[in-house]
Computed example of a mutant assay.
Amino acid sequence: MEAYEDKVFHEMCLWKARIQRTPAGGSRLAKSLQNKINAFIPEKVHWLITLTIEKMVKAVLFGSMYTIGAKKKERSLQLKEAYVKRTARHYKNAATLEGVITGAGGILMGFADFPAFLAIKLKMLFEIATIYGYDVKDYKERLFILYVFKIAFSSQPKRQEIVKKLENWEKYSQTLPEEVANFDWKDFQLEYRDYLDLAKMAQLLPIIGAAVGAVANNKLTHQLLLNAMNCYRLRYFSPIKQLSP
């Protein structure tokens, strides 16, 4: 492989190794506490939250495919990732500004941050997929985007499950349901909501909410970018090399 590919292959292996580590005690404790809280929430409330997230994500998924251009022509991996990073800067700036506006508005505007920030992140993933050369009109490519989203915003054990699926995506995708309605939306919303609860709760506080919203949104968007790049690197390198843990 060329020098750039050697470099990013190494970065990908380090990313994968971090995912495969045993979760730290603090993160296991936080997840255990969140699971106990979830157990006290009535099932009807979970159902309502799940339905809301499902509708929001579907609207973005099926709406974005009509606003993103066709998949890009074949390019080198280095050129693709240069375009990915340039494109992501636009979304990071939009997410930061959105965090400032909603964070400054207190609790009510803080809740409005949820769908707005979700839309920004998913739209960014659509553009990243097309830059890497994938057709986002393909139903299974949209599911791949959801798995990328999950691996960025899930607990460590869940990330370990997902990375195994993504590194064997071509084979795994053959086992996926043919309808997006059969996707596990409850698991998706619980992992996403629990992860962001820890990162963004302070955004709802007065005075400091704008600063917290800006920093949290910028950091989380960058985190999504890094995970997305490594997920697509998994697909790029899987036919070339046997991935090391």
Rank of each mutant, 00 (worst) to 15 (best):
H10C: 09
M12K: 09
K16Q: 11
I19P: 02
I19G: 06
G26Q: 04
S32W: 15
Q34K: 09
K36P: 01
K36L: 15
K36T: 12
K36N: 13
I37S: 04
F40T: 08
E43I: 06
E54M: 14
M56L: 14
M56R: 10
V57H: 00
L61G: 03
F62E: 13
G63R: 02
S64N: 12
M65D: 04
M65P: 00
A70I: 11
R75C: 09
Q78H: 13
R86P: 01
T87S: 13
T87D: 11
Y91I: 10
T102N: 10
G106P: 05
L108I: 12
G110E: 03
G110Q: 03
P115C: 09
F117M: 05
I120Q: 00
K121G: 03
K123H: 11
L125E: 03
I128H: 02
T130H: 00
T130N: 02
V136R: 01
Y139S: 10
E141S: 08
E141D: 04
E141K: 07
I145W: 08
K150E: 15
I151V: 15
Q160T: 02
E161F: 13
E161W: 12
I162Q: 04
N168F: 14
T175Q: 10
A181L: 06
N182F: 15
D184M: 04
K186V: 02
D187T: 12
L190F: 07
Y192L: 15
R193W: 09
Y195K: 06
L196K: 05
L198W: 10
M201W: 13
L205P: 03
P206E: 08
G213A: 07
G213K: 00
A214E: 00
A216W: 02
N218H: 11
K219G: 03
H222R: 15
H222L: 15
Q223N: 11
N227L: 02
R233E: 04
F237D: 04
P239M: 06
I240D: 09
S244C: 15
